[in-house]
């Protein structure tokens, strides 16, 4: 009898069986209240607002690459209609100007992309166009990095990245949109 009691005392344990249920409850709570989505997007820096109209800038027209998107989501690039899928390659040619043509940018540092859309342009088209223009620049930077350092742009040091950035600066200027199309 006394031996049995001693064994019972030694087996004193908190029942951990319900611990799993508690943990499950917490788990389900977190599953319900949280989302997995990672937030990614196209980063844009807006120009500061000023009440005065921007000063008239005299630009050499060869350095300006004007992209217009109308309410029907069609592109007009430097006065000529263009397909979206050709935009990236053509923008790259314009910025780098490999054959030193008279009607393209003198230097990547002087090139300016001017983007103008309509209030009726669909956001999807706008973002695709913006993405293509940004992609053109990042591809050029990538090529420059490979040519100069033999490494991908993202693996370069901060100084080397900055050097390439200042050599091929990303300048996308957005004009006040026109208001011809239907908003919906």
């Amino acid at each position: 009898m006394s031996r049995k009691r001693a064994r019972d005392r030694m087996k004193q344990e908190v029942n951990a069986g319900s611990m799993a249920d508690i943990a499950f409850l917490l788990l389900i709570f977190f599953l319900v209240t949280t989302t997995i989505d990672v937030d990614k997007g196209v980063l844009v820096k807006l120009p500061p607002w000023s009440d005065e109209p921007p000063p008239e800038m005299k630009m050499n027209s060869r350095n300006v690459y004007s992209v217009l998107v109308n309410a029907n989501n069609e592109l007009l690039v430097r006065g000529e209609p263009k397909e979206l899928r050709n935009l990236r390659a053509d923008t790259k040619v314009f910025i780098i100007n490999p054959r030193r043509q008279e009607n393209m940018a003198e230097d990547p540092r002087k090139a300016i992309i001017s983007l103008k859309n309509d209030r009726g342009t669909s956001y999807r088209t706008y973002l695709e166009v913006y993405n293509e223009l940004k992609a053109a620049y990042s591809e050029l930077r990538e090529e420059e990095a490979l040519r100069k350092h033999g490494k991908s742009f993202e693996f370069l040091s901060n100084e080397e990245q900055g050097e390439i950035r200042s050599k091929i600066p990303l300048v996308i200027s957005e004009a006040e949109p026109t208001n011809f199309g239907d908003e919906g």
């Binding site: 997007g41 820096k45 807006l46 120009p47 607002w49």
Partner: peptide
């Protein structure tokens, strides 16, 4: 555009088009 203009007026210039 209206939202962007308002953001510029407010001084919130760093934006990110979620995609």
């Amino acid at each position: 555009t209206d939202v962007k203009t308002q953001l510029r007026k407010t001084g919130q210039l760093k934006i990110n088009y979620s995609a």
